[in-house]
Design a protein around this nucleic acid. Structure first.
Length: 269
DNA sequence: GAAGACCTGCTA
DNA sequence: TAGCAGGTCTTC
């Protein structure tokens, strides 16, 4: 599932592939809800002729900065991804939108489950600081203000943007903190451990080119169709019932905020 | 704060 | 063939 490291990997690859500086010459929308709330006709009209000046990211949102008042904001949700083609346009089975760029480059937005979204706006709304950029002080201040459970909090994009189910479980495992632990009960050392774990887990996943984990069809692949190099790094996610890498006791699986949550009851408190 | 809706393909 | 997976928005 694309979380921050996967989106960042795609962003970097789009830069390398030379998407920057190209003009959007034509837009094809195959699944209208992809561009909801705009109609495909309005959406296409607004970005046709615009130049992609920069590619940035905040949390899980990919931002195509255009030479207009609006930018193109893309959220991959669970199964979204991009790939490029050149020459004669050939639509792939799961392509929901295709941007035909100047120089004969086609940018395909592929999304089997149709949850991904393309929006027009200056910047994605309602997000907290990016997980790669949040400072320790800001992290502590937010933790101290709430008594929500840690896993729920980590998944809340208005608290910290970019952490999803995989990296939430991995960060809590690394910090030795129980997913249901209330934020307000953490000691200073525990808050620091959580901060270090979140930033370390996210940054090392970015360095490894993202993680490909999931239920099979939702597996993430990068721009070139490769799965992430971080796949064998999971200590908790997807390892329910398997021995903890630290204490060898079987990992437990519970549901938190309606998501599968795996942790070690022996190591995480 | 919890649960449903949105979707589809893979697994059991 | 039923159920699961997951991110976010909507609705109780």
């Amino acid at each position: 599932m694309p979380e921050l490291p996967e989106v960042e990997t795609i962003r970097r690859q789009l830069c390398t592939a030379g998407v920057k500086g190209r003009v959007v010459e034509k837009v094809l929308i195959d699944w209208p809800r992809t561009v909801d709330p705009l109609s495909p006709a309005v959406f296409c009209k607004k970005i046709t002729g615009r130049t992609i000046e920069r590619l940035s990211r905040h949390g899980k949102w990919l931002i195509f900065e255009l030479d207009s008042e609006d930018n193109l904001l893309v959220h991959l949700r669970m199964t979204g991804g991009f790939y490029l083609s050149s020459g004669a346009l050939k639509k792939g089975t799961y392509d929901r939108a295709i941007l035909q760029l100047s120089g004969g480059l086609n940018l395909h937005f592929r999304d089997p489950r149709k949850f991904g979204r393309m929006r027009l706006g200056v910047f994605p709304l309602g997000l907290g600081p990016d997980a790669m950029e949040i400072g320790a002080r800001q992290f502590f201040q937010t933790l101290e203000k709430t008594n929500r459970g840690l896993k729920t909090l980590l998944l809340d994009q208005s608290f910290i943007a970019g952490v999803g189910n995989i990296y939430a479980d991995e960060a809590l495992f690394e910090a030795r903190l129980h997913p249901l632990r209330k934020a307000g009960t953490l000691t200073d050392d525990e808050m620091l451990a959580l901060y270090n774990a979140v930033t370390h887990v996210i940054r090392s996943a970015v360095e490894n080119g993202g993680t490909s984990l999931g239920d099979g069809q939702g597996n993430y692949t990068d721009l070139n169709g490769n799965s992430g190099g971080n796949s064998d790094k999971a200590n908790a996610y997807g390892r329910a019932g398997l021995p903890c890498v630290v204490c060898k006791n079987p990992l437990e699986k519970i549901t938190v905020a309606q998501r599968a949550t795996v942790f070690c009851a022996h190591c995480q408190h």
